[in-house]
Simulated scan of single mutants.
Amino acid sequence: MSELEPRERDTDRLASSAARYEDRIDAGLAAAMREKRELDVGVVRLIARVVGRALGRQSAFAEFARSGEGDFKALSPEYLEIYNDPSTPATVRHWLDWLGTYFVHTAETAAIEPANETRSLRRNTTSVRGIEVVFHAARDLSDADLEAIQRELELLDVDRDRALRAYLSLPDVDAGGAQMMERFHDAYAGEFSTIDEALYGLVELREWEKELEQWTAERGLLSDAASIDLDVIESQTRELYDFGKLEGTIYAFWK
């Protein structure tokens, strides 16, 4: 079956995908409860990815997971389909409760807005205890405002935290914005030695390879008759994640 063809609901995929992302999603839920706020959009998209794995790539949930955009009227039937299915794991149903609250509060109109906003930020460099730190901040900040950001970075020991320095180097991260450290922790998705390692760590590549192997075997084809184009997978993964490279290590962050 082609990855682009519609497919019936797959409860095994739902369960395996939920197990894969359970720790990240539960951490996002815990942060929202601790800070008494709605879910971060990155966590919402991760829940959508889990549901989308069961419904297929052409589902509204799969599209929302990829782009952060979706029509609430299209999402609602799929939401109810999964929620009311007796085979849906209790953990996933709990996540859907959170998702429903998120939709009520943020999708009152029919459309869900894209996660990223266009901001006008300026690239800056500073030195913290001899370590160069690149960060971005609003163009209209005064010298005093920039100095305050630099002092804050020193207090955060950014010179000792390579993942944080990689995050700050991203062009759409505002170092002067509110709750910067909370945004960093919400966005952080892992560190990897190579981009291929990142792809295997962030998406279900091994599962896809097994499915492709089974597909070729069922048709009597050689194992190398079909393969996954990693360039395409990388392009699609970059729709969900930003990558920052620092001192030979690749750091991934939810957009």
Rank of each mutant, 00 (worst) to 15 (best):
Ser87Phe: 07
Leu75Tyr: 02
Ala107Leu: 00
Ser127Pro: 06
Thr109Pro: 05
Tyr83Thr: 01
Gln150Phe: 03
Leu99Lys: 05
Thr109Arg: 12
Val134Ser: 00
Leu155Asn: 07
His94Glu: 15
Leu121Arg: 03
Glu152Asn: 15
Thr88Gln: 07
Val128Glu: 00
Leu146Asp: 02
Thr118Leu: 15
Glu132Gly: 06
Thr88Gly: 03
His94Cys: 09
Thr125Asn: 10
Ile131Cys: 01
Asn84Ala: 08
Thr125Leu: 10
Leu146Lys: 04
Phe135Lys: 04
Ala107Asn: 04
Arg139Cys: 14
Ser120Gly: 14
Ser87Trp: 07
Ala115Leu: 07
Arg119Phe: 12
His105Cys: 09
Leu156Pro: 02
Ser127Leu: 08
Glu113Arg: 12
Asn116Pro: 08
Arg139Tyr: 10
Tyr83Ile: 01
Leu99Ala: 11
Arg139Asn: 13
Ala148Thr: 14
His136Leu: 04
Leu155Arg: 08
Phe103Ile: 05
Ala107Gly: 05
Asn116Gly: 08
Gln150Glu: 15
Thr88Leu: 02
His94Trp: 08
Glu147Val: 13
Ser120Lys: 15
Pro89Ile: 07
Arg129Asn: 10
His94Arg: 15
Ser76Trp: 14
Trp98Gln: 10
Asp97Cys: 07
Trp95Glu: 06
Ala110Gln: 14
Leu96Cys: 08
Asp85Cys: 01
His94Leu: 12
Glu132Met: 13
Ser87Gln: 14
Ala90Ser: 14
Ala144Cys: 06
Pro77Val: 00
Trp95Asn: 05
Ala115Gln: 12
Ala107Val: 03
His105Glu: 09
Glu152Leu: 11
Tyr102Gln: 01
Glu152Cys: 11
Ala138Phe: 08
Asp143Ile: 08
Glu147Gln: 07
Thr125Asp: 14
Tyr79Met: 07
Asp157Ile: 01
Arg119Gln: 14
Val133Gly: 02
Ala111Trp: 12
Ala115Gly: 13
Thr126Lys: 02
Pro77Ala: 00
